[in-house]
Computed example of a mutant assay.
Amino acid sequence: MAASKPQIAYLGLGTMGRGMVANLVAAGYSVTVWNRTPVDSKDLGVDVSVASTIAEAVSGADLVMYCLADDPAVRDVVQGAQGVAAHVSDDAIVVDLSTISFSAHVEEREAYEARGVRLVDAPVFGSRGEANAGGLWVVAGGDEADFARVREPLSVVAESVHYMGPSGSGVRMKLVGNYLVLAQLTALGTALSMANKAGLPVDAVLGVLKVTDFRSPIFDGVGDAVAKDDYAPDFAAKLALKDAKLLQEVGAELGLAVPVADTAQDLLERAVGEGWGDLNASALIKVIAADAGVNLAR
């Protein structure tokens, strides 16, 4: 890209998109946005152009970015006569920040390659708070020269940006990380339920978890929220269920047992069945506590 800042099209203004757009604008980028549900620029609180169609949004864009919920959402935005692949300039770079399956990534990549458009897969760790603060963590795959060209705008939305290797490497790393997230949520729910049944005060337990050599930001943040009976969504349980299923798929593909994903999928399916799908992913802890017959709130 030229020395001047690239023109950015950002598609999708959900949990992650609004924060990323605000940070890009604050850093001096010119951004055109599109959202499936129409939005007014005044509602966004930042100086952006609002396009009514994907074609309008990507027209003239040097860089197209999106962070969408799942495989079907990415297919819907990318493919087809009205999709990004049909309308983006062949000298633009597309950055997909979504968490999707490897097979969906391959479909997406092939749709762009047919037009000669370059794609960087750059899924993110973090949720609404990190997106708003510009504190996400990006794991990227693709051609290294293409990655170098988009590193600067990615650094605006992220605390750190990591190049993982060829196309698809970002997608793979995101699933590796998500396995660890689900493992920690499951372990935390079981440990807190065990402590409760053993008569240990929740505040004392959390105090230990904050200082030991196995401390974790997830244990700290989610543990405090659970003690307050706070399951307000940063990352919805229904989306965590999607990730657990993706982990099952990659495990089958690689011939690898993924026992935590098995357990988390069961817990999250039950959470969604209880009507907790729009609560935080930590709602799986509510299921663990219910099975144990305990109340983890103070």
Rank of each mutant, 00 (worst) to 15 (best):
V39W: 03
S41V: 12
V46D: 06
D47Y: 05
V50H: 01
I54Y: 01
A55W: 01
E56W: 03
E56V: 02
A57M: 06
V58N: 00
S59D: 13
L63H: 02
Y66R: 09
L68E: 04
A69Q: 12
D70Q: 12
P72A: 04
A73M: 11
A73R: 08
R75W: 01
R75V: 06
D76K: 08
V77R: 02
V77N: 04
G80W: 06
V84L: 09
V84I: 15
A85Q: 03
S89I: 08
V95G: 05
L97M: 15
T99W: 05
S101L: 07
S103R: 08
H105F: 11
E107H: 12
E108Q: 15
R109G: 01
E110R: 14
A114I: 14
G116E: 12
L119Y: 00
V120F: 03
D121V: 10
D121W: 04
A122D: 06
V124Y: 05
S127H: 14
S127G: 15
R128Q: 15
G129C: 14
G129F: 13
E130L: 15
E130G: 12
N132P: 12
W137M: 14
W137R: 11
A140P: 00
A145C: 10
D146W: 04
F147G: 01
A148D: 11
A148W: 08
R149P: 04
V150E: 04
V150R: 00
E152T: 12
S155H: 10
V157Y: 02
H162P: 07
Y163F: 15
M164K: 05
M164W: 01
G165N: 07
G165W: 05
P166E: 13
P166L: 12
S167Y: 09
S169P: 06
V171R: 06
R172W: 03
R172L: 09
V176T: 12
N178Y: 07
Y179L: 13
L180I: 14
L182D: 00
L185E: 06
